[in-house]
Write a protein that binds this DNA or RNA. Structure first.
Lengths: 154, 154
DNA sequence: GTCCGATCGTTTGCATACCTATGATCCTCT
DNA sequence: AGAGGATCATAGGTATGCAAACGATCGGAC
């Protein structure tokens, strides 16, 4: 009869449940690693955060967007996108102008500085994606992306 | 010559870069969905957050742990685990006692209430994992977990 | 025994992220 | 036209998450 050194008083209560093997835990770990890689890699291009970069790219891609629509397109809560846009505006990368069609809405446009910042930032982002996927081979990368797409879009 | 309605001024600057297809974006989406499922599913078992649940399970599993070690085992920053433990203590699920071996350290132990809370919480957590993986079949689930493990542990 | 680097816990500051509530505005139905 | 529900942006509150700095303590080298 062997005794497990790590087995504590609650061992029986947990059954065969292992937090480290749950999707949530593994997703969080993967996120953490990606966030660290992103911060390192984007430091060379103005130090945009991942969400700020996502929002800026989307604004540039569309030319102009409502803040609310931008939030939906980038999967951010209205309360979240508000802060992200505010910080992008504080950096001078984005400008807010009134929407002639809807006085509630604010139309977001990239400033010249924002347009200048996008190109090198996208270059960094490509490298960041590559670095994040480094542990996987080509087939595994395709598989992971497909599975994540399936998992995230119910 | 067709014109794309969504093509804005910055279309050429971005090349073929699509934020929505990057690992980081897909990871965030998957995380969001899991977090929503977790909050819904754990509401029936005291409303613990995902990180609080993870920490509590680990404490129960080990019987007693140093706060710092707990952080490493649950992939949480010292600054992060501090707040998580503080909230668990405020809920009366965890107790802090001085470490006789190291006067800097605080040993964490589950209270009776904490032990009582773990069993139903783990039951919820199993259902949450199942619900999160719902969009995938058995093979895809195995594949995803393997890929995430590989991705998160460099 | 003492100094010195390392570790433990905490605090502060910043950035997500979401909930709820609120005021302003829009839009539809009557 | 006017009422009523829906939508937009914002504000406040809570919870992660990490970097940096801090005091207290530990440990080993001398």
């Amino acid at each position: 009869m062997t005794r497990r050194a790590t087995a504590g008083p609650g061992h029986a209560v947990l059954g065969d449940y292992l937090v480290e093997e749950q999707v949530g835990f593994l997703l969080r770990r993967a996120q953490q690693r990606h966030a660290a890689i992103f911060q390192d890699g984007m430091h060379a291009a103005g130090g945009l955060t991942a969400t700020q970069f996502t929002a800026l790219v989307k604004i540039v891609e569309l030319g102009q967007v409502t803040q609310n629509l931008l939030g939906r397109l980038t999967a951010m809560d209205p309360a979240t996108i508000q802060g992200v846009v505010r910080r992008l505006a504080a950096r001078g990368l984005v400008r807010r102008q009134p929407d002639p069609m809807d006085r509630r809405a604010a139309v977001l446009v990239a400033t010249p500085a924002g347009l200048d910042a996008v190109r090198p930032a996208v270059a960094c982002a490509r490298a960041i994606t590559t670095a994040t996927l480094q542990p996987l081979d080509a087939g595994e990368r395709r598989a992971l992306l497909a599975l994540l797409r399936k998992l995230g879009n119910p």
